[in-house]
Amino acid sequence: MSTETKQTATKRAVPFRWVAVGIAVVALLLAGVVSYYASANPDGLEYVAGKTGFLDSASEHGAADGPLADYSTKGVDDARLSGGLAGVIGTVLVLVIAGGLALVVRRRSTGSSDEA
């Protein structure tokens, strides 16, 4: 029964590698290119804070002087490049950290080396 299911699945299945590449390419395009065209208006919370009158209570961000602060790369003058580069760096960083974390947390197929 299970072999039958597997056969039907593999016949139609797109290889995982393609799906992975697809998601990665879409993410990199969004962060690296499309983000330039994103709305610069304040987001819902910021807008409501402004209207309701508590936006001033926000204090300066501790990492406001960081090299990637506010999604722009320090030292890169071109806005399109600066933002796109920051987006790509962030996307790759999140991929590595979250993917790495998931690999550490996952069930090992062997199961014998359980450290938790």
């Binding site: 995982f16 992975a20 999140v94 790495g100």
Partner: peptide, 8 residues
């Protein structure tokens, strides 16, 4: 690996 991609 999918989890990493979803986060990205």
């Amino acid at each position: 690996p999918l989890a990493g991609l979803v986060a990205a």
